[in-house]
């Protein structure tokens, strides 16, 4: 980012001066001699990502921003949810370059150049993703809070199984078969406070059938 850009940002966000200890430390030591140095101290950077097929060239991304906060607060894609912010619930699950991760534990700046898919981008236009369709069919939710994470996670998990990745309950790793025990184990990173697990497993079992394979 450029010095003038940082100056603009500071103007636009006056309370940064009160909230940011580095700014205070810096200004206390004398007037800023170089805005670029201040930008470095404050920890902001540019970021280029493709989210659901759209390219975003972002400036002034605070280094503390997680991928989840970037997606929700800056890109206003609020489908991905924040349940725990500690990697424990899976509500924030998104696909990065096709692999499922917890967006709450991932710093946004680490994703420069990555392709990210959120629940908003899973369907092809008006055609639902097979996992989305199966969740509707089987009522795989009650309140729906965990659902975007469940669906993104299931989509990633089905790819992992197709690629032959084993799980802790796999007997024959050369032949991964998605039994209910396999689905439960592979989806254990997604909690549902409503306890809709029975229908979630049924939906994923259905979506895993070859006819639904994408």
């Amino acid at each position: 980012m450029t010095a003038s850009h940082f100056a603009l940002l500071v103007d636009a966000n006056v309370d940064v001066q009160y909230r940011c200890p580095v700014y205070k430390r810096f200004t206390a030591a004398g007037a800023p001699s170089s805005l670029e140095r201040m930008a470095e101290l404050y920890g902001m950077d540019s970021l280029h990502v493709v989210v659901n097929g759209a390219r975003y060239d972002l400036e002034g991304v605070d280094s503390r921003t997680t991928l989840l906060d970037l997606i929700r607060e800056r890109l206003h894609l609020t489908g991905s949810k924040k349940g725990c912010d500690h990697g424990q619930c899976g509500a924030c699950t998104v696909l990065v370059n096709g692999r499922r991760i917890n967006a709450c534990l991932s710093l946004a700046l680490t994703h420069d150049g990555d392709a990210i898919t959120t629940i908003e981008g899973l369907a092809g236009g008006d055609t639902l993703h097979p996992v989305e369709a199966a969740f509707l069919e089987h009522d795989g939710f009650q309140c729906g809070y965990c659902t975007p994470g469940q669906i993104c996670s299931a989509a990633g998990m089905l790819d992992e199984a197709r690629q032959g990745q084993p799980s802790y309950v796999t007997d024959d790793a050369d032949h991964v078969e998605l039994t209910d025990a396999e689905i439960r184990e592979r989806m254990s990173g997604n909690l549902c406070r409503c306890g809709a697990y029975v229908n979630i497993v049924a939906a994923i079992r259905d979506a895993a059938r070859p006819a639904h394979g994408s």
Partner: peptide, 27 residues
Amino acid sequence: AHRLIRTRYPMLSQALLAGASGQLRNM
């Protein structure tokens, strides 16, 4: 998931799969 690990060191593959969740293991 790596074949060398699964066949020559199954305890290592199993230990990894017993840890955390699918999402966390991808990270």
